[in-house]
Amino acid sequence: MKIFVCIKQVPAISEVKIDRKTGTLVREGVPGMINPMDKNALELALSIKENTGADVIALSMGPPQAEEILRESLAMGIDKAYLLTDRAFGGADTLATSYTLSLAIKKILKETEESKNYLVVCGAQAIDGDTAQVGPELAEELNIPQITNVRYVELSENKIIAESIFQSDEIAVIECKLPVLITVLKELNVPRFPTISGIVDAFDYKEVVHWNAKDLDADIQKIGLEGSRTQVYKIFIPPQKNEYIKLSGTIEDVAKDLCQKLKEDKIL
């Protein structure tokens, strides 16, 4: 059995700051990291591996420096890591990203003569783009079913049972035969830390395979900017609101003023 985990390198968001004076992003020293939910995806794959001996593969599409997160996944215990990197992949929206990822998965399945016995795990969403679209689009491209927003998984034989959250007060328990793609939430598990020997292995013995558009035999019309259907038309920093209205005086005055204002705003 094979488990594919798709991981994305994202900027550590909490460290992205805005310089209000110049209205620009302060990027200096913002480190890259594994998208948080993708760590939960890795942890799930590794725990299944411990029980079943499944072969666990990490995939990432991104610029050359995304190799860092693949090394980190190897240090956690992933068997093999692939970086899909090519100038031609640049500017990809979710449509083009999922196409590119699907090519790598198909190629690995073909090379290893595995056809049905596999699971794909993605994070539910990435914290930079926040789209939550790559997982379902990848499932569609692979023509396999999907279960999104998963918070608990059990694997037995060739099927999985997953708990998915579609309504805030309900959990749907869903059963599905392999192959299937799931997207996972943070509450699924607590990701492990790499071990010292894991880190040594990851940097000294294991390799990150690089594949470009040609290696994947990609249709140029479907990758990168060319393969994207959405177009960023404008990027802007949310305008800062005007000065707020300051309410002052005695506590009673303040309370009266506020209620008066809220009445004017037709809220009360």
């Binding site: 979710t94 783009g129 789209t131 939550a132 679209q133 790559v134 379902p136 689009e137 999907q146 177009q231």
Partner: peptide
């Protein structure tokens, strides 16, 4: 919503059209 974000991406993929999230 969790449901909308579950089905919409697959539809956009099948139709090969753009989808803007959230």
């Amino acid at each position: 919503t969790p449901i909308g974000r579950d089905f919409a991406p697959r539809i956009s993929k099948r139709l090969q059209t753009g989808l803007t999230a959230d």
